[in-house]
């Protein structure tokens, strides 16, 4: 994995503020707002770190910044929303593999 420092302390505190307050308000909000809050955190974290991130991550981060706001607007279309989340999951897995390539199967 890369050892780059990509997040400043202020940015990290801001992200913590979002996560902690989201946890509290989620206790009183509809369940489908849970993914919304996590995606908002994803978008903000991606925006915060993209400038200092390595090439290996940049496309993934840029896609998060561009696509997540549109995904919020699709919440009422459950199938499209799930498909969008699945696509993000595939992209995060591909990014993980770029950061931590797995050994070839030599069996």
């Amino acid at each position: 994995m890369s050892e780059n420092w990509v997040l400043k302390e202020d940015e990290a505190i801001e992200l913590l503020a979002l996560l902690i307050t989201s946890a509290r308000i989620q206790m009183e909000e509809p369940a489908h707002y849970g993914p919304l809050r996590l995606l908002t955190a994803t978008e903000r974290l991606s925006s915060a770190i993209i400038e200092r991130a390595s090439e290996k991550s940049r496309d993934f981060l840029q896609a998060n910044i561009e696509r997540i706001p549109d995904m919020h607007m699709q919440m009422s279309d459950t199938d499209a929303y799930a498909a969008g989340l699945d696509e993000l999951c595939r992209r995060v897995a591909e990014t993980l593999l770029r950061h931590s390539p797995l050994p070839e199967d030599d069996s």
Binding site: P69, D70, H72, M73, Q74, M75, S76, D77
Partner: peptide
């Protein structure tokens, strides 16, 4: 150009 929230119904 971003669209608004899609109506549930």
């Amino acid at each position: 150009t971003k669209r608004g929230m899609t109506a549930w119904k």
